[in-house]
């Protein structure tokens, strides 16, 4: 069997197609930052532990540092550069600004992408480790501060702006509930 250690791939990012040759060892994170100048996605630990590189893949929040770029071919990738609607900020972005959901700002793109994905998960009825009774008969879980902390625990903030982050996410959730806009379509499998 022939051995190829690089491939020409096409990535779908923020509604645009990018075709580029990649060494198979290239992570999605490095492809975004080093090859495509999409430097909004940050490299923190590069080990899947800090959440700074969170992007949405097919609407789901994921970490870009543990995905190979070649394996991301064919998927719809949304980075922090793609969440606003033109000049209109995404409600989660606006809430982070309004409530100072950051200090140095390095973890913020990951926090915001994670919050967008998390709000869609909650809207789809997914329980969390903070939810207590997980049986469907128990009904949907309100998005309490405790729920937000648990669901956002994959995003570290070394400035420790957590109090404001929780408030910003709660504010964005309220805006979402009143407008039913601003987050991706509810996720399919769990909605039943």
């Amino acid at each position: 069997m022939g051995l190829a250690t690089s491939s020409v791939i096409t990535l779908h990012i923020n509604g645009e197609k990018h075709t580029l040759p990649v060494d198979h060892r290239t992570t999605l994170l490095d492809a975004l930052r080093e090859r495509l100048d999409l430097t909004g996605t940050k490299k923190g630990c590069d080990q899947g532990q800090c959440g700074a590189c969170t992007v949405l893949v097919d609407g789901h929040r994921t970490v870009a540092c543990l995905q190979l770029a070649v394996a991301a071919e064919g998927r719809e990738i949304t980075t922090i550069e793609g969440v606003a609607d033109g000049d209109r900020l995404h409600p989660v972005q606006q809430a982070f600004i309004d409530l100072d959901g950051y200090q140095c700002g390095y973890c913020t793109p990951g926090q915001i992408c994670s919050a967008i994905g998390m709000l869609a998960e909650h809207a789809a009825g997914w329980p969390s480790a903070a939810s207590g009774d997980v049986r469907p008969a128990a009904g949907p879980t309100p998005l309490t501060p405790e729920e937000i902390r648990e669901r956002m625990s994959g995003n570290l903030c070394r400035c420790s702006a957590y109090t404001s982050i929780v408030e910003a996410v709660a504010r964005a959730a309220e805006a979402d509930a009143s407008s039913a806009a601003g987050v991706p379509e509810p996720l399919g499998e769990a909605a039943a």
Partner: peptide, 21 residues
């Protein structure tokens, strides 16, 4: 969730939302 709630709880106790996705 309804028939094997311990399994849902075990999975949700592991990793982060991003990694579970």
């Amino acid at each position: 969730r309804s028939r094997y709630p311990m399994l849902t709880q075990a999975v949700l106790a592991g990793a982060s939302g991003q990694l579970r996705n």
